[in-house]
Amino acid sequence: MYNLRQNIDILLVLVQKELKVKYKNSLIGFLWSILNPVVLSIIFYFAFKIIIRVQTNNYPLFLTAGLFLWQWFQVSLLNSLNSFIHNRSLVKKLAFNRYLLPMSIVVTEMIHLIASLPALFIMMVIFKVQFTANMLFLPIIIVESFILVFAISLMFSITNVLFRDLERIILLLLQVVFYATPIVYTANMIPEEYKIIMALNPFLPIFEFWRSLFLGLDVSLSILLHCLGSAVIFLLLAIMHYKKYIHLIAERL
């Protein structure tokens, strides 16, 4: 019964709500969302560049670019996990489209990512990386990432209402995915025999493409298509999951 315009209005108001609630508690909320990946970058820089001595050019830029993107994914997934539970009083009273709640979380965190992009551009200048026309692909890779992260967030947020202890499992899973994705290391460091398994990781091509934009490397359109393909597959899975279980959400809250 809700049309597109109503859904957009609802999404915008929910995103505003997320931002307001977040910044009401602390004005430095936005700084936190930058501080976390920056501190992690410093830790990994010492661990992998100074101690293990990974051979990669512009490693600090490589790390920071990847960790900013990871921060978006991780915070979106963890926050949307409880999006129905935290908005119980909205879900139990009004019949709006439920997918808008996790979507509003992913959009809120996307705004944080976009707001912190200048930090990456400044690093590019410091490391004397050329800005190329490839940067025009930035919105496309953000949209593809959005689809993937929203799809996973939607599935997890529904499942978490049905099984309330999902959060522990997700925290563990996020650790696994973090190290299974080339974020602190490069994809070409993966030994040949593991490459096939690693290729199943839907995050891998996204990080590859994303970082090549900030490192001024050549980009491959086939990677961009790969990202789109896996995002769409996850979206279809999420829609199936949504259709099957969404009617249970209000009564199980």
């Binding site: 929910l14 709500k17 909205l90 009004l94």
Partner: peptide, 22 residues
């Protein structure tokens, strides 16, 4: 208090609640 968010002000909740009603 159904359809409201406790951390938002009354004014903000009016907008939230109205929009969620469609």
């Amino acid at each position: 208090g159904g359809g409201f968010h406790p951390e938002l002000t009354g004014r903000e909740n009016i907008v939230l609640n109205g929009v969620l009603m469609g």
